[in-house]
């Protein structure tokens, strides 16, 4: 694919994500209804001109709750990705760069964490810590850092043995220069793409924890929590679960498509 086509694709997908960000972070200031205001007389209203996505069992506007909840879903997943990628990458880089005892200790910790199915581990940690968004973030970080530790470790190990790194060492480059000039620029692209591609999965995991009652606390409009609450009314008011699911789908697909376009852009010479 030509560079201009890749740039166009990346621009379009980035534009879509920026639009979503504006919608979730600035939108709440311009909502037609208060997302947490209940009005039983307006419960289970189907989509109409007054409530474009209808209302839920307590008469709250679903559109307003999706916009308000989007900020929480996106913010929490970005927090998980930032924390887990930074912690995982630092540990992976230390293991890959220094090797020896550091590599053994960090690899053993990774092996222990990998021994558990990832979502089961997140549920266990969130369950022990108690229901809150903060604890759900900690639980998901405990699962997602492994990906970045493994990835950065293998990337650093691979690059360290490249001839241009050996040549740099022979030219007198100190370890800090070798790391910041040669190794970091070579791995940052792959790590960034993985982060972007994982955001969708983290949003789903966060929704999963909230669905199980281990994430957002009522009346927070986090999408997973809303889906969990509304599953009892699926027959009666399918629009509640449908529009929340659609919002989740659009954001996940938006991040995945952006990650894919970034991958093409970075790996295109």
């Amino acid at each position: 694919m030509s560079k201009s086509k890749i740039n166009k694709k990346l621009g379009f997908r980035l534009g879509f994500l920026i639009a979503l960000f504006f919608l979730f972070f600035i939108g709440p200031f311009f909502l037609p209804h208060e997302p947490f205001e209940t009005n039983i007389s307006q419960a289970f209203l189907p989509p109409s001109s007054q409530h474009i996505f209808g209302t839920d069992n307590l008469g709250r506007c679903i559109f307003c709750r999706i916009i308000a909840g989007g900020k929480i879903s996106v913010f929490t997943s970005l927090a998980v990705m930032t924390l887990s990628s930074v912690i995982g990458s630092i540990l992976g880089i230390i293991a890959g760069y220094y090797g020896g005892i550091w590599d053994k200790i960090i690899s053993d910790i990774i092996t222990v964490f990998q021994a558990f199915p990832s979502f089961v581990l997140a549920i266990a940690i969130a369950g022990i810590l108690g229901q809150s968004i903060k604890n759900a973030i900690i639980a998901l970080c405990a699962v997602y850092w492994i990906t970045y530790a493994k990835l950065s470790r293998s990337l650093v190990q691979q690059i360290r043995s490249d001839n241009y790194i050996k040549a740099a060492w022979l030219c007198g480059a100190p370890p800090t220069s070798i790391f910041f000039k040669y190794i970091l620029p070579s791995i940052i692209g792959s790590l960034f793409i993985t982060v972007v591609l994982d955001i969708g999965s983290v949003i789903l995991s966060m929704a999963g924890l909230s669905f199980l009652g281990l994430g957002a606390v009522r009346p927070t409009a986090e999408w997973g929590a809303v889906i969990s609450e509304s599953r009892n009314f699926m027959q009666q008011a399918p629009w509640i679960i449908g529009f929340n699911g659609l919002a989740l789908f659009l954001v996940v697909i938006g991040f995945n498509l952006f990650g894919e376009a970034m991958d093409e852009k970075i790996n295109c010479k």
Binding site: N163, Y164, K166, A167, L170, C171, G172, S186
Partner: peptide
């Protein structure tokens, strides 16, 4: 070890991998 080899240079078999790609 690095300082002792400051007047030594090495050229490698694979020409492309000898230069930093970025």
């Amino acid at each position: 070890a690095q300082q002792q080899r400051s007047t030594m240079q090495m050229i490698f078999q694979n020409p492309l991998s000898s230069l930093a790609p970025r």
